[in-house]
Nucleic acid binder design. Structure first.
Lengths: 310, 310
DNA sequence: CTGGGATATTTGACTGAGTCAGAGATACCG
DNA sequence: CGGTATCTCTGACTCAGTCAAATATCCCAG
C-alpha cells in the first residue's frame, strides 16, 4: 500500500532533516526560521514582506518581529513599497548578504558531510530519485504537451524500447518472452543496418525521461514503409504523445517518398487502434494467430501517403 | 552540484511535511512528537524509555514528561526493567493501542489525500523513488554480498541488458550505436531460440533492482560454451557480483557437459579481465579491430572445464 | 466621492514545545 | 570498594510560533 510507503518515507526523512540541523550552531546566532527568511531574501527577486509570508507560510506577526531583529542587526533595510504603501519592501544590506552566504555555507557543509557517507557511484541515482519525488509531488498540475520532446535515440534507448515493450505488454496483456524476442529482433535489425534517410526511430522524452517510441522502416513491398513498436508509458498517456509519434512517422514517410505506410498490430491494443484510425489508417486484413502465449487477432493497417496531394 | 540538489530537496520536503501536519487537529489532543512516541511504542518491540529516546532522539526530560502524560491518560503502564532497574519498561495499554490506531488512521487519511493528487499511473514511480532515496541515505553501511540474488530473467530484463550495456559502454568508453546493435542481436538470438538446458541468462538483483547480467550460449565449436554480456552496474561493483555471475556460468557449463568455455572481450575492459583470470581462463588470442567507433584490441579467452576432475 | 470590506503590517499577550542542569538511583569497571 | 557513567525525573527556563487587536491603506460598488 502506497500510503504506508509515503508515511515510512516521511518518518525517515523527518529524521534526516532533524539530524542535519541538530547542531543548532548551524544557524547561530539565528534560528532555522530566521535563516529560511534570509535565504528567501537572498534568492527571491520579489521581497515584499507579504511575499515572504506567502512563500514561507509564516505568521505575519512572527515575520514582523524577525524583520525587526534583522533590521537591528543591520542585515536589511525596510522601505514602504512604491505601488502599495501598505506593503513593506525589504532589501538586504551588504552585511545581510554576507551573513546569508555564511549561513548557506554552513548548511552546505552539513549536507556535504551527509553526502560524503554516500558512495560516489550512488549519487546520480540519489539525485535522480529526489527529483522524481519532487516533480511528482510538486505538480498537482500534470505535465503538459509542451513538456514532451521528440528526439533521435541515444545510447541505451534501443534497449529501453525492448525493455519497456516487454515489461508493459507482459504486465498489461500477459504476453510471454517471445514478444521480447520479437522486439529485440526488430531493434537489432534496425541497429545493425538501416538507411538513415529511409528508416528512423523517435523517442518521446518527458522531463528527461523516455516515455514513448516509434520506428519507421522499409517494408518488403516496394515504396512501402512500415510503422513499428509504437509505445507510450502508462503514466504519460493522455498527452497526445502517441499521436505525435505517429504524425512524425507519417510526415517522415511522406517526405522521403514512400507511397504507402503499413503496420501490423493486434486487436487487443485498443488505444493504439484509435490513434491509427484518427490518422487515416484503414484496416485491410485481420487474421487470428497464436503468439506470445496468447490467442490474438492480428490486424494489418494501411495508409496511402499521397492520396491527398499537397 | 549534488549538495544543492539535496538542499533543494530538503527545502521542498520540509514543506511537504509541514503541509501534512499543518492541520494540527491531526494529532489532537496530542502533539506531533507525542504521536511519534506513540507510533514507536506501537511498532517497536523494544520499548524501554531509553530505546525511545535513542530512536527518536528526544531530550530525556521531555520524554519523561510525555510519558507522564500518557500514563495519566491511561495509554501506557510503566514498570522498571528487569535486568536494569535504572531503566523503565513502557507498555501500551489497550486504550493506548486504540489511541495509536486512531492517530495512525488520521495520518493515513492526510497522506491519502496528498496521494490522491498524484495520478495513479505515477504512484509506482513515486514509491520506487522514495525507497531509493531511503535505502541510499539510510545505510552508511553499503549493501552486502548476501543482498545480491541471481535469478532468471523476467519480462523486460533482456531489454535491460541491451540498454545498460549500450549506455554504460557509451559513457565509459565512448562506444557508438554499433555496440547496442550487437548486443540487441545477441539478445534477440537468445530470446528467439535457445535450448534452456544448454543456454541461459542470469540477472543479478540488488534490493529488487537489476545490477548485473551474464549469458551462456552454445558456441559453433563442438562441446564449447560461450560466455557473453557480462556486466555489473558501477554502483554495485565491489560486491563480487561479477565473480558470482562467472562462477554460475562455469558451474552451469560444466554441469551440462560442455568441455570448454570461451569468451571474447576487449583489452580495455580491465576489471572483467581480472575476473576471468581469477577463474582460470587463459588468453588464447589477441587481435586488433575497429568496432563501435573505436580502435580496440579483441581478446579470446578459454577455460577447459574438465581439467580439474571433481 | 464615499462607505464597506479586504489586505499589510505592527505590537502586546500568550502558549506550549523543547532544552538545560541538577539530583537520586543504579550499573559497570578496575 | 570507589569512581565514573547511565537512566530517569523534576524544576526552571527559553523562545519559536499563535492569536487578537489596532492602524493604515487598497479596492470596489454605488
Amino acid at each position: 500500500m502506497t500510503v504506508q510507503d509515503i508515511r515510512a518515507f516521511n518518518r525517515f526523512y523527518t529524521n534526516v532533516i532533524g539530524a542535519l540541523d541538530y547542531s543548532r550552531h548551524l544557524y547561530a546566532p539565528y534560528t532555522l526560521t530566521e535563516s529560511r527568511v534570509l535565504y528567501e531574501l537572498a534568492h527571491s527577486p520579489r521581497t515584499d514582506a507579504a511575499d515572504l509570508r506567502a512563500e514561507l507560510s509564516l505568521d505575519a506577526g512572527y515575520l514582523s518581529r524577525i524583520l525587526n531583529k534583522f533590521e537591528q542587526d543591520g542585515l536589511i533595510e525596510r522601505t514602504t513599497s512604491r505601488n502599495d504603501p501598505r506593503r513593506r519592501r525589504v532589501t538586504l544590506t551588504a552585511r545581510g548578504r554576507e551573513t546569508g552566504k555564511l549561513l548557506e555555507e554552513r548548511s552546505n557543509e552539513a549536507v556535504g558531510s551527509l553526502l560524503a557517507t554516500v558512495p560516489a557511484a550512488e549519487r546520480p541515482r540519489l539525485a535522480e530519485a529526489m527529483t522524481t519525488v519532487r516533480t511528482i509531488l510538486s505538480h498537482g498540475r500534470p505535465p503538459r504537451r509542451e513538456d514532451v520532446v521528440l528526439r533521435e535515440p541515444g545510447p541505451g534507448d534501443l534497449g529501453w524500447i525492448v525493455q519497456r515493450n516487454a515489461a508493459l505488454y507482459a504486465a498489461e496483456y500477459g504476453w510471454n518472452a517471445d514478444y521480447e524476442g520479437l522486439v529485440a529482433r526488430i531493434v537489432a535489425d534496425f541497429a545493425e543496418d538501416h538507411d538513415p534517410h529511409l528508416e528512423r526511430v523517435w523517442i518521446a522524452e518527458l522531463h528527461g525521461r523516455p516515455v514513448g517510441c516509434v520506428m519507421c522502416v522499409r517494408d518488403e513491398a516496394p515504396a512501402t514503409a512500415r510503422l513499428r513498436l509504437l509505445l507510450v508509458e502508462p503514466d504519460a498517456r493522455g498527452l497526445g504523445i502517441g499521436g505525435r509519434l505517429v504524425t512524425s512517422v507519417i510526415d517522415f514517410a511522406r517526405g522521403v517518398g514512400y507511397r504507402d505506410l503499413v503496420l501490423w498490430t493486434n486487436d487487443v491494443l485498443a488505444d493504439a487502434r484509435r490513434i491509427y484510425q484518427r490518422h487515416g489508417f484503414a484496416l485491410v486484413a485481420e487474421k487470428p494467430h497464436r503468439s506470445f502465449g496468447k490467442d490474438l487477432l492480428g490486424q494489418d493497417w494501411r495508409l496511402e501517403l499521397h492520396s491527398t496531394p499537397e
